[in-house]
C-alpha cells in the first residue's frame, strides 16, 4: 500500500472539491473493496477523502419514492422497515451479498462502485485491460468460469459482482449525484457501462461526482418477488448466476414483471424483452421457460463458463417460480 493523505470533510462540497481538483484523490466510505485494492497495489490514491461524516445515511420517503442515502449501510438497508415494506426484493439481494461483517461496513453507494472480482484484475503480475489498459484480457483465454456471457468485448469479459445492483436495476432505480457541475440524476440503466474498448471506465460518473442517494420509485412489486443466487458455497461467495425477479400478479396472470441478472455481464443485466413477454401471460413454468429462452438470446460463453448458458435460463425459471409462489 502506498502512503496517502487522509481527510474527513464535514460538507459534501468540500469533499467534491477535493476529489475534483486532486487527480489522485478518491472518496472512501465503507472501504470494504477500496482497501483490498490498495493493499494489492491495484489502485494507489494519494489522498483519501473519507465521506462518512456527510449526512447521507437516511432512508426516507421522497415524492413517493424511497430514497436511500449513499452512506446507508448494506446491513441496515436490508433490514429497514420502509425497504422491507416497499422493496423487499432489494432487501433479499442485499442479504445475499458478502457476509454479515461486510454488510455492516459496506455502504449502498460503495456497493454500486465495487470493482469486478476477476482474478486477472486482482493480480498485478497478470495482464488486465481494466487495471492496466493495453496489457490484454487475461480471462479471455484464461480461467473464465465466473465471467460474462452478455455485453462483453475482446478487451474485457469481467462481471460486476454486486447483488444489490441487480435488484436496483430491476426496480428502475435512479442515482442522485452531485459534482463540480452541480447535481444530476442518472437512471440506473445508464449508471454502469459495458466494457467496450474502455473497460477501465466502469460507470458514467464524472471525476469528482459523489453519489448522494438512490431513489426507488413506487411499484407494485412488494409480494411476488425473489432474489435467487446460485453460488459455490452457501454464503460469502460471488454469484455464478443471480436473478432478481418481481411479478405483479392478477390471480394467476402476470400484469407486469421485472427481471435482472447478475454474474453475467459487466453491469447488472436487465431483461426487458423477457419482462415484456411475461406481461399478460399466465404465471406458469411454461411461460417462464419461454421468457428465459428469450432472455438468453445473444448470450456467448467462453471455455469455462458454458454452464451459464444452461444455468442462466434455469435460474430465471426458478426465480420466477419462487416469485409467483408456484415452486
Amino acid at each position: 500500500m502506498n502512503q496517502f493523505q487522509y481527510v474527513q470533510p464535514a460538507k459534501s462540497k468540500a469533499a467534491i472539491d477535493t476529489v475534483t481538483k486532486d487527480q489522485t484523490a478518491m472518496f472512501i466510505a465503507g472501504g470494504t473493496n477500496l482497501l483490498d485494492l490498495m493493499k494489492r497495489g491495484i489502485v494507489t490514491p494519494e489522498k483519501l477523502v473519507d465521506i462518512n461524516k456527510l449526512p447521507l445515511k437516511k432512508i426516507q420517503k421522497e415524492n413517493g419514492a424511497v430514497r436511500i442515502g449513499a452512506l446507508a449501510l448494506n446491513g441496515e438497508t436490508a433490514e429497514d422497515k420502509l425497504v422491507l415494506e416497499k422493496h423487499p426484493l432489494l432487501s433479499q439481494a442485499l442479504n445475499a451479498g458478502a457476509s454479515a461483517q461486510l454488510r455492516n461496513m459496506a455502504t449502498v453507494g460503495g456497493n454500486m462502485l465495487q470493482r469486478t472480482r476477476c482474478p486477472y484484475f486482482y493480480d498485478t503480475a497478470l495482464p488486465c485491460n481494466k487495471r492496466e489498459p493495453g496489457t490484454g484480457c487475461g480471462a479471455l483465454e484464461g480461467y473464465n468460469r465466473m465471467h460474462a456471457i452478455f455485453g462483453h468485448s475482446e478487451k474485457c469479459i469481467a462481471v460486476h459482482p454486486s447483488d444489490m445492483s441487480v435488484a436496483l436495476a430491476a426496480l428502475d432505480a435512479t442515482v442522485l449525484v452531485s459534482g463540480p457541475k452541480g447535481d444530476r440524476k442518472i437512471p440506473f440503466a445508464d449508471f454502469h457501462r459495458l466494457p467496450g474498448d474502455t473497460p477501465h471506465i466502469e460507470t458514467n460518473l464524472q471525476k469528482g461526482e459523489l453519489i448522494l442517494a438512490v431513489d426507488l420509485p413506487e411499484n407494485p412489486y412488494t409480494k411476488n418477488i425473489h432474489y435467487l443466487k446460485i453460488r459455490d458455497r452457501a454464503s460469502y461467495a460471488f454469484a455464478l448466476i443471480s436473478v432478481a425477479a418481481a411479478l405483479d400478479l392478477d390471480g394467476s396472470n402476470i400484469r407486469s414483471a421485472r427481471l435482472a441478472m447478475g454474474g453475467v455481464a459487466h453491469k447488472p443485466w436487465r431483461l426487458t424483452e423477457a419482462e415484456n413477454f411475461l406481461a399478460g401471460k399466465p404465471a406458469t413454468e411454461t411461460t417462464f421457460r419461454q421468457a428465459a429462452d428469450l432472455a438468453m438470446r445473444g448470450a456467448k460463453a467462453f471455455e469455462h463458463n458454458k454452464f451459464k448458458l444452461k444455468l442462466g435460463p434455469n435460474a430465471i425459471v426458478q426465480a420466477l417460480k419462487n416469485a409467483a409462489g408456484v415452486a
Binding site: L126, G142, Y143, R233, A237
Partner: peptide, 28 residues
C-alpha cells in the same frame, strides 16, 4: 467447495484468497 485453480499459461494461481478459495462457511 474447495480447490485451487491455476492459469497454466503463467503457472500462477488465480484463486488465492478466502473469497475465491471456498472454505465452507457455517451456512454450508
Amino acid at each position: 467447495t474447495e480447490g485451487t485453480v491455476m492459469d497454466h499459461r503463467f503457472g500462477r494461481y488465480v484463486t488465492k484468497d478466502l473469497a475465491e478459495y471456498h472454505v465452507p462457511v457455517h451456512a454450508d
